[in-house]
Design a protein around this nucleic acid. Structure first.
Length: 629
RNA sequence: GCCUCGAUAGCUCAGCCCGGUAGAGCGGCUGCCUUGUAAGCAGCAGGCCGCGGGAUCAAGGCCCGCUCGAGGCUCCA
């Protein structure tokens, strides 16, 4: 709290304009107060009622010396760069006012939240001008926290600090083995993942491989002109990202989810959002617009919950599934945590909520979605060897639903990590996440699902049951693929791992920007190359032509460095024989002889069922700009 | 956010310790070569040495601040 205290002959102030939504009511007329001690006051983060009283007590001491008993509390934000939230500030200002009146001081107050005009005449004596600053004292701080604890949400937050986790491995029969007793032989990644989760101990001194790759392959790059964690996508990267987005969305459509679209920014002071938000105090991007304070969404929950709040539905229609691909969700992660495509401040997340009548329905749906998530990751290009699963639940939940956990474990067919809590700290009773373990032995969550038992109430979302009574549903929160950017991170890290193991690194065929590269041996064969390109492209295959004036060997080298899956050289032999010599990256670039039709059939089969986008760059390589050295 | 380290041509990096006219390779452009499965040859252009301040006759190099990045800590709904 900062106070500028001025002993004045008089002050005249006039509210001009409301600055914020929660501004107090006030008349736009001049107010004049004579012979008064004016307190220009800024309320800072952490200030509370105790501090309000202390400040007023200090002022009272001065009033005695000055022989005045009249104060004006004047909210004045400009004294601090560490202001509290307006709603908090108003509370503290009111505390000051009430306490001062209680102590018999003639107290005036300028309205909060207004742009005000003022004229002041200050007395010239030594005690007339005083500035004071109050940092939250340890006691005041503790008191503030105790106070917070009374709110249910903050209690949960505070509990999270003390949260104690017990780590186990879930065997495929659903039984739990303490992590220390599990033999990790043959489960190297699970061991790494467990280490990461439990000890969080890492020692690495290398640039994350996917960061180098995302730049070199002209997929994505940092954008220094934005905020950290806001990424620039080049044509190839945009295409890859768009295909993944399309794929996940179409899979969720097939699952029966209804796609919706909701705003990316929300009013800080909206009553339904407030208590939910309080759990995440410093994590949003905040923006001011006219008289409103808005935050950027960090998931699709807000929009979908507000929509579900207004919707009418009954048990007969449930489970009801809403889906949105958020482009973007925003989380203002701490600067030291933002890295590459792994952890961003603006990211694209598919988010599907299922509203279920009861736990039985929720469990059934949960299992369905679990299988969908594994399928989605598989289609993106990840096998069960690429990731590890963590199940998180309370001891109580496990005891009651052991069979269900066992069923999930059996479905997955591999041991999983279990984080077990003694009591529930979060709004969910069961959660799992699929984690990719990267080349620095760090883990990043991809798919996730959870059973939420709190938010229906918080958002007043209800359905009508068989008896015609309103009930709160259980809400499942699922991201089938996790953040799309993170999928690309994992694909690149996987490719790098393949490379280290002596394999040719590559993207899945359906995501390769160029699927087939044609290299005419000389200008003479350009016509033939164009003809062939036309034929291949007509089958929804991305094909391009290297028409640069360099050597054959160099063109092959460049195609290999671009991770092009099929490279075809076109010259005299091909034209005469009618068969193509295809360099197949998957087969360590061995040359395979096949006809154009055979190649088309092969590619078509491999990308069957996946979305398609045309070549993201000009057909001729010579026409392409260079986006990254 | 904190601690440590870094930022030099489009890219990768040398020069900094010990202050004195800005370097290489790749890429780009121009020309030659018309190529048979991972780098053909030559020439040319290209720099606010991240931004701002300071000390110095003189700063890419020393000092301070900032921005961005990397690692660690913390965090990860």
């Amino acid at each position: 709290m900062r106070i500028l205290q001025l002993h004045s002959n008089f002050i005249v102030f006039k509210p001009v304009q409301k600055e914020i939504a929660i501004a107090e009511e006030a008349e736009q007329k001049e107010n004049r107060v004579e012979e008064v001690v004016v307190l220009f006051t800024a309320i800072e983060e952490g200030d509370n009622a105790a501090m309000a009283q202390k400040a007023i007590d200090d002022v009272r001491a001065f009033l005695g010396k000055l022989k005045v008993n009249r104060i004006l509390i004047y909210p004045f934000a400009h004294l601090s760069s560490n202001l509290s939230k307006p709603s908090e500030a108003l509370k503290v200002i009111k505390d000051m006012e009430a306490y001062a009146k209680e102590k018999g001081i003639e107290t005036y107050r300028a309205p909060f939240g207004w742009n005000k005009q003022f004229t002041i005449s200050i007395k010239g004596h030594p005690l007339a001008e005083q500035a004071r600053s109050y940092a939250p004292t340890p006691e005041a701080k503790a008191e503030g926290e105790t106070k917070k604890e009374e709110e249910p949400v903050s209690a949960a937050l505070k509990a999270e600090d003390k949260l104690q986790s017990f780590w186990h491995i879930i065997l495929t029969d659903g039984s739990l083995v303490p992590v220390e007793e599990f033999k990790f032989k043959g489960h190297v990644n699970l061991q790494k993942f467990s280490q990461y989760e439990i000890k969080k101990a890492r020692a690495v001194t290398q640039m994350p491989p996917h960061v180098t790759l995302m730049k070199r392959l002209e997929i994505a790059d940092y954008e220094a002109g934005s905020d950290p964690g806001n990424i620039r996508w080049y044509p190839k990267g945009r295409m890859i990202k768009s295909l993944l987005e399309q794929y996940v969305t179409s899979r969720m459509n097939a699952y029966g989810a209804m796609e919706v679209e909701t705003p990316i920014m929300y009013d800080f002071n909206h009553p339904s959002l407030k208590s939910y938000l309080n759990r995440f105090p410093a994590r949003q991007y905040v923006l001011k617009s006219e008289d409103k304070e808005l935050f950027l969404r960090f998931a699709a929950c807000f929009g979908q919950f507000l929509m579900a709040h207004d919707a009418q539905f009954s048990y007969k229609q449930m489970p009801i599934k809403l889906y949105e691909l958020t482009r973007y969700s925003f989380r203002r992660e701490k600067s030291g945590e933002v890295v590459g495509l792994k952890r961003l401040r603006a990211f694209t997340m598919p988010d599907c909520h299922a509203f279920c009548t009861d736990l039985e329905q929720a469990k059934k749906e949960f299992l369905t979605r679990f299988n969908i998530c594994v399928e989605v990751l598989s289609n993106i290009g990840f096998t069960k060897d690429d990731y590890e699963i963590a199940m998180r639940f309370t001891k109580g939940f496990y005891d009651e639903h052991k069979d269900f956990i066992a069923e999930l474990a059996k479905t997955f067919g591999q041991p999983m990590l279990a984080e077990v809590w003694n009591e529930r700290f979060f709004y969910f009773i069961l959660k799992w996440d699929i984690n990719f373990v990267d080349n620095q032995d760090k883990a990043a969550a991809l798919s996730t699902d959870q059973i939420d038992v709190e938010n229906a109430k918080r958002y007043e979302i209800t359905y009508v049951d068989e008896k015609g009574e309103k009930q709160y549903p259980l809400i499942l929160h699922c991201s089938p693929s996790g953040a799309i950017e993170r999928d690309i991170y994992a694909l690149l890290e996987k490719a790098y791992r393949d490379q280290m193991a002596g394999k040719a690194p590559m993207l899945p065929l359906w995501l390769s920007p160029t699927q087939v590269r044609l290299i005419p041996i000389s200008d003479k064969f350009m016509d033939k190359a164009e003809e062939l390109a036309k034929q291949i492209a007509s089958h929804r295959i991305r094909v391009d032509i290297d028409d640069n004036a360099s050597t054959l060997q160099k063109k092959i080298r460049e195609a290999e460095q671009e991770w092009v899956p099929y490279i075809i050289v076109i010259g005299e032999k091909e034209i005469e024989s009618g068969t193509l010599s295809v360099r197949d990256r998957e087969l360590k670039s061995q040359q395979q002889n096949m006809t154009a039709d055979q190649l088309i059939a092969k590619v078509t089969e491999k990308i069957a069922g996946k979305p398609f986008k045309p070549l993201p760059l000009p057909l001729y390589i010579s026409k392409r700009p260079q986006f990254h050295g």
